[in-house]
Simulated scan of single mutants.
Amino acid sequence: MAISDMPMLSALRTKMQWHQERQRVLAENISNSDTPNFRPRDLVEPKFDKAGNTSVTAGGMGSLPMMRASGTNILPTGGSASFNQNSRVGYETRPAGNAVNLEDEMLKVSANQMDYAAATSLYTRSLGLLKTAIGKR
Rank of each mutant, 00 (worst) to 15 (best):
N53F: 09
S10I: 01
D34W: 06
A69N: 12
V44R: 06
N37Y: 09
T57C: 00
V44M: 04
S63D: 08
Y116P: 09
S55T: 08
H19Y: 00
M67F: 03
T77I: 10
N37E: 13
E28L: 02
A81Y: 15
K108A: 07
E45F: 13
E28V: 01
A58P: 14
N32W: 05
L107A: 07
Q17N: 13
E105H: 09
A133L: 08
L130N: 11
R41M: 09
M16R: 00
L9H: 05
M106Q: 15
M66C: 10
G90P: 15
L43F: 02
R13A: 05
G62H: 08
F38S: 07
K131G: 07
R24F: 01
S121E: 14
F38I: 02
G78P: 14
L64T: 15
V56K: 11
K136A: 13
P36G: 10
S110P: 03
R22T: 08
R22D: 02
V44D: 08
S31F: 03
A111D: 12
S10R: 06
S4F: 02
E103M: 00
G62W: 08
G71K: 05
I3W: 07
L26C: 05
W18E: 00
D104C: 02
A99F: 13
S87L: 14
F38W: 09
S10P: 00
L12A: 06
P7G: 15
K108Q: 08
K47D: 03
A119M: 01
G62E: 05
R68T: 10
L26T: 05
E28N: 12
K108H: 05
L43C: 06
Q85F: 06
K108C: 01
P76H: 08
R41Y: 11
N98V: 09
E28Q: 06
N37W: 12
D42L: 03
Q23S: 13
K50I: 13
T132N: 06
D42G: 09
Y91P: 08
K15V: 01
M114Y: 02
L102V: 03
E45T: 07
N86L: 00
L12F: 09
V89Q: 15
